[in-house]
Write a protein that binds this DNA or RNA. Sequence first.
DNA 1: ATATTTTTTTAGGGGTGGCTAAAAATGAGT
DNA 2: ACTCATTTTTAGCCACCCCTAAAAAAATAT
Lengths: 217, 217
Amino acid sequence: MTTLSEENYLKTIYHLGQQGTIAVSTNAIAEKIESKASSVTDMVKKLADKNLANYVKYQGVSLTNLGRLTAASVIRKHRLWEVFLVEKLHFSWDEVHDVAEQLEHIKSLKLVNELDAFLGFPTHDPHGDPIPDKNGNYTLSKSINILQMEVGSQGVLVHVKDSSDVFLKYLNKTNLALGDAIKIMDFEPFDGSMIIQTNSNTINISKEVAKNLYLSH
Amino acid sequence: MTTLSEENYLKTIYHLGQQGTIAVSTNAIAEKIESKASSVTDMVKKLADKNLANYVKYQGVSLTNLGRLTAASVIRKHRLWEVFLVEKLHFSWDEVHDVAEQLEHIKSLKLVNELDAFLGFPTHDPHGDPIPDKNGNYTLSKSINILQMEVGSQGVLVHVKDSSDVFLKYLNKTNLALGDAIKIMDFEPFDGSMIIQTNSNTINISKEVAKNLYLSH
DNA sequence: ATATTTTTTTAGGGGTGGCTAAAAATGAGT
DNA sequence: ACTCATTTTTAGCCACCCCTAAAAAAATAT
Ligand SMILES: [Mn+2]
Ligand SMILES: [Mn+2]
Ligand SMILES: [Mn+2]
Ligand SMILES: [Mn+2]
């Protein structure tokens, strides 16, 4: 049985290292999880003892198959709960993350499977992230970052990389939402900013913002 | 902010001591929570430090107003989640308790209030226990224990005192469910057993079972 | 190649929440 | 009132998960 803390580490390693396949440094984990490298070293040893991670001193951490499956299960729960909160309980997409961080650790196979069915087997969460199936598998939709698109081309916003409430509140303020049709009007090489047009208005977005917006092919 | 463990202690003290109003012994708490009296002493000091409990050495523990409110909030969440699991996710009443034990500790005021609304503001959980409102208040329905009823009288099963899965599975097996009309056919003074009749059949129940069945006035 | 900086691990320690065993207080029986 | 059994607390310990500071290894610069 995995603890809450172990599950958070597994998720972090999964996200940092291509589903946990490539080794990540203790420092990188510490930064993401907002702890210290020494704490990470301790935990990573425990994960290795439990056959959840591969750990070689000074050479970083990756996940075992078991670790990967466990991480995917937590991520599956996180994203299903986010859908539940938005679709059924009137949460907006910037309010769900903290609650989902708690709910993702609830242990009940029946609960997650029934929830999945109750929600109509959703494939993506409110931020456009794919929901892994029971085996931890998902097909990544072939969206592309808005910075790679040609001026004059169009697409639909299907994914935001950053799910922090501060970023999502910014998008709310500028009236950008998942599903919006977007046309690239101009790109400024000096600072990487863009001018984009939605159904409702034309706005200027910084490169920082653009990095997080993904449109359907 | 209360921890998961603190919340479980508060709930236990609340249940053992008439909403926490009368002092309960460390031993009683230890037995209910399946820990040891020495562990309870430690925790109870912490609860007193946090102004959640009144504790006088060797004289047991009761709850402060804050402690009572916190306990009621946890119980509210427990029972709302039980309703959710049964009404929306096809759980049966003997499957909900362990999952609700986990879900009751999720911290989000918006979540519990939206859940309440989503469920249509239920007043009772799947075992007939009342759901406290936001202020911790509830009206106890005036059901009576089946052992107090006259032979020949009738009532509707509205509450089961024991919510353990082993007891509920027994009721399932004998085809007894909340809402069933029940007629008392006979009472045996020797062992306190009863013969009762439902719509579907006539059954003999032991005193142990009868103690846990409450019928509407 | 060697020195310096950066990264990572180890050593030692703190808070929480549990335990056992010993000591202290309480309560009952005579 | 005093003894004995029971209840409760205290003392000391452990696992978990985090920390800071020091040591060790690795990476980088000269
Ligand atoms: Mn999230
Ligand atoms: Mn998400
Ligand atoms: Mn319950
Ligand atoms: Mn219940």
